[in-house]
């Protein structure tokens, strides 16, 4: 079982605001899954290499040539708030900072 503080710390790292009910739910569900994945502690992996990449027989390279994607304007229009090709965000620092 993990603590309420743990849930809030993880949620903060993950940039997720949680309601009080969600904190209770995730305390239970995160605890359940973390308990389950402890299963791996019993596996002997001494000397076993990392599978950081799935084996593919070949890696494809394309020609090293600049290609225009023409997508920037279309992509920025999908933002909830934008102006003149820029994303609008709240002030990063408060006025009194």
């Amino acid at each position: 079982m993990i603590s309420t503080e743990d849930v809030l710390r993880i949620a903060s790292l993950a940039r997720l605001s949680l309601t009080e009910n969600e904190v209770v739910l995730y305390q239970k569900h995160l605890g359940r899954v973390l308990d389950y994945i402890k299963d791996l502690e019993s596996v002997d992996t001494l000397g076993v290499g990392l599978a950081t990449h799935v084996p593919t027989d070949s890696v494809a390279f394309r020609e090293d040539k600049a290609v225009d994607s023409h997508l920037a304007a279309a992509l920025i229009k999908l933002a909830p708030e934008h102006e003149a090709g820029h994303f609008i965000v709240p002030a990063v620092m408060d006025a009194d900072q």
């Binding site: 791996l40 502690e41 596996v43 992996t45 076993v48 290499g49 990392l50 599978a51 950081t52 084996p55």
Partner: peptide, 11 residues
């Protein structure tokens, strides 16, 4: 890292 090592074993 542990999970990736077990992934190697599965492969």
């Amino acid at each position: 890292l542990k999970a990736n090592r077990v992934r190697s074993l599965i492969q």
